[in-house]
């Protein structure tokens, strides 16, 4: 079996190398990829969409339909994770839990079926693989998270001009929240932003994208033809393209952020939403 695999890999590799014989030169300005479609994008993007960043314009406008489905892929991944992993039916005391008695600093281990102390100022639930609260980690993340979030908003909003956009900004937003979860614990982060909220936000983000496209259709344009939004936004058709891109980028950002958080909840706790990193 190993030998067959090796032969197939060799065959595939040599095919790939064989194909490079007829490749256009690396970075060749006369290659079809740079002479066929690109000139039109390079020359007309500003005039047609008033977006200086051509990549953003191609991504969210000329081929915005692809991007809508890329966002849907992220959404599908999140909901698939939830669908496969989430465990609902659980009894309260079917597994070992750990609590800390805060006044004395004693850690209690409660066996299966044991009596669980009520959540109070004295008792605090801790993860079984608990590491003592690290003040440095805690304080640093508390300091840094707002700035990460601010930067994420900048990345989303500034996608028109610089590298960035909804996917990148959404990932940074999600990462900020996951940092919070890592520095505290999963339960604290779920108290901040519950599973339901992340699930609904995840769907709402893509819905904003697809809904914007549908609105364009309702207003008489083709699907995702942002110039149809002129009437609602009160701008000329070219600026409407620019604004339309911003709206869908925000949708992407919301969806990607929520998907990151939702996937993290399900993966880190194996669907129990109880203990985990």
């Amino acid at each position: 079996m190993k030998i067959i695999g090796f032969i197939i890999v060799l065959l595939c590799g040599s095919l790939l190398i064989y194909g490079t014989i007829d490749f256009p030169g690396f970075g060749d300005p006369d290659a079809p990829a740079s002479t066929y479609l690109s000139p039109r994008y390079v020359e007309n993007t500003m005039a047609e969409t008033s977006v200086p960043n051509i990549v953003t314009a191609v991504l969210a406008d000329y081929r915005g339909y692809d991007t809508m489905f890329e966002t849907t892929v992220v959404f599908s991944a999140a909901i698939a994770c939830f669908f496969l992993l989430r465990v609902f039916k659980r009894r309260e005391n079917d597994e070992v839990r750990h609590y800390r008695h805060i006044p004395t600093g004693i850690t209690l281990r409660i066996e299966k079926g044991g009596k669980i102390p009520e959540e109070s100022a004295d008792f605090q639930r801790i993860d079984s693989e608990w590491v003592p609260h690290d003040m440095i980690v805690n304080t640093t993340s508390r300091l840094i998270i707002p700035f990460i979030q601010l930067f994420a908003l900048y990345v989303i909003a500034h996608g028109h001009h610089s590298p960035g956009g909804g996917f990148q900004g959404g990932v940074i937003l999600g990462a900020a929240f996951i940092l919070f979860a890592v520095s505290r614990n999963l339960r604290a982060s779920i108290r901040r932003m519950g599973e339901k909220v992340s699930a609904i936000l995840c769907a709402a983000g893509v819905f904003l994208y697809a809904g914007t496209g549908f609105l364009c259709y309702l207003l008489g344009g083709n699907f995702l033809d942002y110039s149809a939004l002129t009437g609602i936004l009160g701008v000329d058709p070219v600026t409407a393209h620019s604004h339309g891109i911003l709206i869908v980028e925000i949708g992407v950002g919301i969806s990607v952020m929520a998907a990151m958080i939702w996937i993290y909840y399900n993966l880190s706790s194996v669907g129990k939403h109880d203990e985990g990193l």
């Binding site: 849907t72 909901i79 699930a199 609904i200 995840c202 769907a203 709402a204 819905f207 697809a210 699907f223």
Partner: peptide, 16 residues
């Protein structure tokens, strides 16, 4: 477009 878009939007509505 409607063949694709209506179920797509419906999928998000169902998720909510």
């Amino acid at each position: 477009a409607l063949i694709i878009i209506v179920p797509l939007l419906a999928a998000f509505l169902i998720a909510v």
